[in-house]
Nucleic acid binder design. Structure first.
Ligand SMILES: Nc1nc2c(ncn2[C@H]2C[C@H](O)[C@@H](COP(=O)(O)OP(=O)(O)OP(=O)(O)O)O2)c(=O)[nH]1
Ligand SMILES: [Mg+2]
Ligand SMILES: [Mg+2]
Ligand SMILES: [Zn+2]
Length: 582
DNA sequence: GCCGTTTTCGGCCCGACTGTTTTCAGTCG
């Protein structure tokens, strides 16, 4: 059972406990543990074997026991006991917007509803609205919730929604009612996927602004509307067949900093900051920081216009949004050991690109010129070397031809270098698609898996480790192989991979393509702790995809990466010195 | 259920909007 499977079960335990009516703090404890384990880079089985489960924040004696049972037996007593009283399927019903634990519990107790179909039937019989506490609107809202649930709403790729969000921000800025507009939430934290857009606006006329917003042509539906907060579905996608859930929050200018902090999150980060506020006799909310009088009756405002003031109030320096996940950033800030995160302007080149020699769209020269426009000093041309026909992979002969072609192009360039390279397939047995005597002629060798994705964890790990041991392999491309919303990562021992990368001096890639972002935050952080170097590469298949770099930098920042951790911040000569021979 | 340079017991973030309520619980951010 892997981390995500364990997390999923802990979350289901939380759901069922909530439906059962357990203390919300107990439920909260399970949700906290769920979240931590979802983001844990170490394999939970290893943590168990080392007897260190209780060292995971939020995991104590009870949850550690649950995890132990899950790992050793595939099931746990607590869940089985819960399921005797509460059907496991009820946790799915809770995913419908507007249905929480209390309503689900009621529907089950009174009508034995356990599935969506049953619920629909019940509503259409209109038995519900006769009951106290339920009316026609309740019925209508549940039906709407079911419809939305069925539209199968995946999370959006950050890279895909980015231009849409920016255009919307610009549009709002133009309104005379608006002072500041920031897109907050997971978007500002630069998570690789975004559940919804959270837009913060300051205005001296909040009510008028809310009315203006819901009258925009982009609005598909208004779900909720009050004087400070609106929830809508925006039109999105071709023919607007899709929609983006959007929360708009309006505050007065003096609350901008506090609201920015609140709305940026993450939720767990907010809770921890507020808790520290309580210890200092402060109340922190989206309107500001307030001193609580000894009688606890009066609040005196002590800050909130600037985001910094929130941190300052609890004795901290400003923390970059990308690492606000309550994963140790608050402790680090307190001890003045926040990382100096890498920035876009630190990037001096791109080490994973495809030209029209393989499956890219543009010529080598165009890629070089585009990179030069972006103030880079170098690129590495890494066309596929692969037997897969569809990607038009290069064989040994064409690789040699390309080396000569690049030599010619390099002569035409000033202050810029193209490194010769390849993205060579790692075969099923860990050998490479090109022989060593070809690899040694290249400046840089990127190796990646593009076939046989379904090996056992052991086989897959050995496969990549073998590739790393090859003296010519400099970089492992997209190390976990995931395609967001499409393909799960390979079964692989990431910790072992990271340790081996350190041992062999192999660079791990942070692939910046929006559907990959691989490595992702938690693994980047682990790699950094081991002293493994990484490369942020776009894997661009056209010149405009060079712009993916920013998403790679964002992801690196989420992994606490600093300039020194990333090799393509180095000037050309230093980078060359770092690469393995050939 | 978890946790602790004030605690091993007693807290646990704080607020907005909705529907059906005559005063607020439920759900969500
Ligand atoms: N203090 C506090 N803040 C919250 C809570 N729930 C949400 N927030 C804040 C922090 C979140 O980042 C922000 C936006 O909420 P969302 O539900 O949209 O979450 P977020 O954008 O982080 O993730 P998402 O990608 O939308 O799933 O609101 C909460 O329970 N308490
Ligand atoms: Mg959000
Ligand atoms: Mg939201
Ligand atoms: Zn590639």
């Amino acid at each position: 059972m892997d981390n995500l499977e364990v997390a999923k079960i802990l979350n289901q335990i939380a759901d069922l406990m909530e439906i059962k009516g357990e203390s919300k703090f107990k439920v909260g404890a399970y949700r906290r543990a769920t979240r931590t384990i979802e983001e844990l880079p170490e394999n939970i089985n290893d943590v168990y074997l080392k007897d260190k489960l209780e060292e995971i924040p939020g995991v104590g004696e009870s949850i550690a026991l649950d995890i132990k049972e899950l790992i050793t037996k595939g099931s746990c007593l607590r869940l089985s006991k819960l399921k005797e009283k509460i059907p496991g399927k009820l946790s799915e019903l809770m995913e419908i917007e507007g249905l929480g634990p209390k309503k689900v519990a009621f529907l089950f107790k009174k009508f034995h509803v356990t599935a969506i179909k049953q619920l629909e039937k019940l509503i259409k019989s209109h038995k519900l609205k006769e009951l106290f506490g339920w009316g026609p609107k309740s019925e209508q809202n549940i039906l709407e919730g079911i419809k939305l649930y069925r539209r199968f709403r995946e999370r959006f790729l950050l890279g895909k929604i980015y231009p849409y969000a920016q255009a919307l921000q610009e549009k709002l800025r133009k309104s005379p009612l608006v002072e500041k507009v920031e897109i907050c939430g997971s978007f500002r934290r630069r998570k690789e996927t975004i559940g919804d857009l959270d837009i913060l606006v300051t205005s001296k006329q909040p009510k008028r602004l809310v009315d203006f917003f819901v009258s925009l042509p982009e609005i598909q539906r208004v779900n909720a509307k009050g004087p400070t907060k609106v929830n809508v579905l925006l039109k999105y996608g071709a023919q607007h067949q899709s929609g983006v859930e959007t929360d708009l929050r309006v505050v007065r200018p003096e609350s901008f900093g506090a609201a920015l902090h609140y709305f940026t999150g993450s939720k767990t980060h907010n809770i921890e900051i507020r808790r520290r506020g309580i210890e200092k006799g402060l109340r922190i909310n989206e309107y500001g920081v307030f001193k609580v009088s000894p009688s606890k009756k009066r609040l005196t405002r002590v800050g909130g216009a600037k985001e910094e003031e929130i941190f300052k109030a609890v004795g901290l320096p400003w923390i970059p949004p990308e690492i606000r996940e309550n994963e140790g950033e608050i402790e680090a800030a307190l001890e003045n050991r926040l990382p100096k995160l890498i920035e876009k302007r630190d990037i001096k080149g791109d080490l994973h690109l495809h030209s029209d020699w393989s499956d890219g769209e543009d010529s080598i020269l165009d890629l070089a010129l585009s990179a030069q426009k972006r103030k880079y000093q170098y690129i590495a041309l890494t066309d596929h070397a692969s037997p897969i026909g569809i990607i038009n992979g290069l064989n040994a002969h064409r690789v040699l031809k390309q080396i000569l072609a690049i030599k010619e192009i390099n002569k035409k360039l000033r202050g810029f270098q193209i490194l010769t390279g390849t993205e060579v397939d790692i075969n099923k047995d860990g050998s490479l698609f090109l022989p060593d005597k070809i690899l040694e002629k290249l400046d840089i060798v990127v190796a990646g898996i593009h076939s046989s994705f379904h090996l056992s964890c052991d086989q897959m790990t050995k496969r990549i480790v073998k590739a790393m041991k090859n003296f010519h392999v400099d970089i492992i491309a997209h190390p976990t192989g995931r395609l967001i919303n499409k393909r799960e990562p390979y079964e692989i021992d990431e910790s072992a991979l990271i340790k081996e990368a350190k041992r062999t001096g192999t660079i791990l890639e942070i692939n910046a393509a929006p559907q990959r972002l691989d490595l992702t935050g938690p693994y980047i952080r682990l790699a950094k702790e081991y002293g493994v170097r990484m490369a942020i590469s776009t894997d661009a298949h056209s010149t405009n995809q060079l712009d993916y770099m920013v998403f790679g930098v964002d992801t690196a920042r989420r992994g606490w990466a600093e300039k020194n951790d990333i090799v393509n911040t180095l000037p050309f000569e230093e980078l060359k010195g770092l690469l393995k021979r050939g």
